[in-house]
Design a protein around this nucleic acid. Structure first.
Lengths: 332, 332
DNA sequence: CCCGATATTGGATACGTTTTCATGCATCTC
DNA sequence: GAGATGCATGAAAACGTATCCAATATCGGG
C-alpha cells in the first residue's frame, strides 16, 4: 500500500482542469465561478493541502519567521515570543525559534541555518556590536529588531520600549526620594540604556556605580554582590532586567541589606513574582508581548514601505521596594 | 545586477565535476580523495550553502522539529524549550515553535501547519483528551510527548518527570508534619498527577479539596481563592505548577492566610522566584531542561527502535513554606 | 595479456508547486 | 461584420537538490 500524499495534480485530474487552474484558484487568482467552485469542492473532498515544500522551492523562500532571542528562559523574552507567535498564527506563518545566548557567534550560526532554510524574515534581539548583521542584511533578509537596536544599523526598523522615558521616570522618582548615589546594574546589549541612565542622572553620575553583567544568573549575581560590597554608600539601584533584579534582591539579602530600608530597588520589567517578593518590587513595566506582536506585524508587512520603527510606552509601577533616603537613619 | 544564489550547479561547474558528485561529497557519500578535496575547496571558496528548499522537496520532508507547548510564557515551558533548542542546535536542526494554549483545536491547527511545512518530527505537550492525535500519528509524524502523556496513546514515547514519586514525597512530607486535610490545585492535563495524588493520600483524600483550574492566571487565582474560602479547614496545599503556586500565594495573602503558619504550601516546579518569595517556597523541582533535551534526542533518533520513554527524577527542595500542623495554635 | 569485479563518476529524473506564455473563445468597437 | 480586446485556461518551464542508473576507469587474478 503506497499512501502517497495527494498533490495538486490529483486535484486537477479529479476536477478535470489543469494544475495551473487549481493553483490559481487556491492562491486567489482569477477563475470562472463554476471552475472555482468545482476545484474547491474537489479540494475539500480530497482533503488536499498544498505542500509548502513545492511552493517554497518555486518561490525560493520558505515563508515563516525566524525569531532570535538571547534566552527563551527569561520570561521577558518568553512574553515577547508569545506576542510574535500570536501575530504569526493569525497570518498562518510558522515561527522558527533560536536562542543566541547573546553570543554574536551563535547568532551568526543561527542566521546561517535560517538562510539555509530559505527563511527571509527575521525578528531578532540583536547581540554583539552589530558587525555580524551587515552580511545578513545584504543577503536580503527582511529584518526587524526588537527590544534592542544594533549599533550602526539605524536603517533597520526596530520595536522598542521607551527606555529613555522609563529610565528618566525611575531616576526622577529616586531623586525625588532624596537618593543621590544611584547605581545601574545592566546586562548585555544595554549601551543604549546606559547612556539614557547617564543622561537622566546628569551630574550625579558616578561611573563606578554603573556595572554591566553578562547574560547568566551567576554573572548577574556576581555583579550585584560586587557592586554592593564595593560601594556600600550607594542608596538606590536600578536593575536593567528581571534577571538583574533577581540578582540584586538575592545579593542584598546575602549582605544583610534591607530593602527598602538600606537600599531602594527599581527593576526593569514587571514580572509576576515582583508582586510576590517581599517587599513587592517597584518596577518599570515593559509591554513585552506588544513588542513581539508589533515586530511580527512589521516583519510580515515586509519590504513595502518600511516604517522607521515603533516606540512603546513604559510605566513605573510603584510597589514597596523604594523608600526615601534617610529612612535608614531614622531611629532604630 | 542579478545576485543569484550560488547553487550546487555552480559548484559542480567550478570544480569541474557533475552535480551528483558534489551532492555526494557534501552529504558524506563516497568519492575519491582528490575529488572530495577539490569539491570542498570550491565549496568553501564560493561560500556555498546547500539550499534546504531543494533538498526538502526532493526528500519530501523538511527536517526541523516542531515544538508544541501550552504556553511559552510559563517559565517551565521556557526551560523545556531551551532544552529542545540546545539539542536541536547541536544537530543543526531548526525548531518550529507553536503555542497551543492547551486548546486541542489550536493544537490541531498548528499540527496542520507543521504537516503543510513538511515537518515530520514533533515534540509536544499534548492537550485535550488525546483524540486529536490519532489522525496526526497516522500521518506518519514521529512524535514524542513531553511532560504529559496523551490518554490512549501509550505507544508514543514520552519524557516525563517522575510525578508519582514527586507527589508521594511531597504528600508524605506534609503528612509527616501532621497535615491531614491536604488540597491539590491542578491545571489542565493533569489527570495523571491527580490520580497520583489520590493514590498518595490514600484514605485521607477529600474530593472537595481537589480543584482543577484552566490554564490562565486568572483562572488559577480564582480556583485558589475559591478553594481557600470554601474550605478554611484545610491546612496544606499542593500546587501543581508554578502558575498555581503563584496563585496560591496571592490568594492566601489576599485572604490573610499566613504561610506557613495558617497554610503550608508545596509547589510543583522550582522557579528562581521561589527563593525570593517570603517565605521561600518549598518545591518539587522538575528537570525541565532535561525533559526538553531528552525529548529532542528521542525525536531525532527517529523511527529506529523507539524506546518506551524516559522518566526523570524529581526532588523535594525544602524551604520555608511548610510548617507542622498545630503551629497555628501555638501561643500568639 | 585479458577478463571480471569494484570504485568512481556524471547524466537524467523526480519531488510539488507557481508562473509565464500561447491558445481559444467570447465580447466589444467602429 | 471584421478586427480588436479581454478573459479563462492548460501546457510547460523553472526552482535546487538527491538519487537511480549506466558508463567509465582502476585493479587484481588467472
Amino acid at each position: 500500500m503506497n499512501m502517497r500524499r495527494t498533490t495538486i495534480k490529483d486535484v486537477a485530474e479529479a476536477a478535470g482542469v489543469g494544475v495551473a487552474t487549481v493553483s490559481r484558484v487556491l492562491s486567489g487568482g482569477s477563475a470562472s465561478p463554476e471552475t472555482r467552485e468545482r476545484v474547491l469542492n474537489v479540494t475539500a473532498q480530497l482533503d488536499y493541502r498544498p505542500s509548502a515544500l513545492g511552493r517554497n522551492l518555486r518561490q525560493r523562500r520558505s515563508g515563516g519567521i525566524g525569531l532570535l532571542l538571547p534566552d527563551i528562559t527569561d520570561t521577558f523574552y518568553g512574553r515577547l515570543a508569545d506576542g510574535v507567535l500570536t501575530c504569526a498564527r493569525s497570518a498562518g506563518e510558522p515561527v522558527i525559534l533560536g536562542a543566541t545566548g547573546d553570543d554574536p557567534e551563535r547568532e551568526a550560526e543561527l542566521i546561517g541555518t535560517l538562510l539555509e532554510q530559505g527563511v527571509d524574515r527575521v525578528i531578532a534581539v540583536p547581540s554583539g556590536d552589530g558587525d555580524g548583521w551587515a552580511p545578513t542584511l545584504r543577503a536580503g533578509l527582511t529584518t526587524v529588531f526588537a527590544h534592542r537596536l544594533s549599533p550602526g544599523h539605524d536603517d533597520i526598523p526596530a520595536v522598542l520600549a521607551d527606555d529613555r522615558a522609563g529610565i528618566r521616570t525611575a531616576v526622577d522618582y529616586l531623586k525625588g526620594l532624596g537618593h543621590r548615589r544611584i547605581a545601574y546594574l545592566g546586562g548585555p546589549g544595554q549601551e543604549q540604556r546606559l547612556s539614557f541612565f547617564r543622561q537622566a542622572l546628569g551630574p550625579l553620575v558616578d561611573e563606578e556605580l554603573v556595572v554591566v553583567a553578562r547574560g547568566s544568573r551567576d554573572s548577574a549575581y556576581a555583579a550585584a554582590a560586587g557592586l554592593f560590597q564595593h560601594r556600600p554608600d550607594l542608596t538606590a539601584v536600578l536593575a536593567g532586567g528581571n534577571l538583574l533584579g533577581e540578582a540584586a534582591v538575592l545579593a542584598a539579602r546575602e549582605l544583610d541589606l534591607r530593602i527598602p530600608r538600606d537600599l531602594s530597588l527599581i527593576m526593569f520589567d514587571d514580572v509576576p513574582w515582583a508582586e510576590l517578593c517581599s517587599p513587592p518590587l517597584t518596577v518599570i513595566a515593559q509591554p513585552a508581548q506588544d513588542i513581539g506582536y508589533r515586530a511580527a506585524e512589521l516583519v510580515l508587512r515586509g519590504g513595502t514601505r518600511r516604517p522607521r520603527g515603533v516606540l512603546l510606552p513604559t510605566e513605573l509601577i510603584v510597589r514597596g521596594s523604594c523608600a526615601a533616603r534617610g529612612t535608614s537613619r531614622s531611629p532604630r
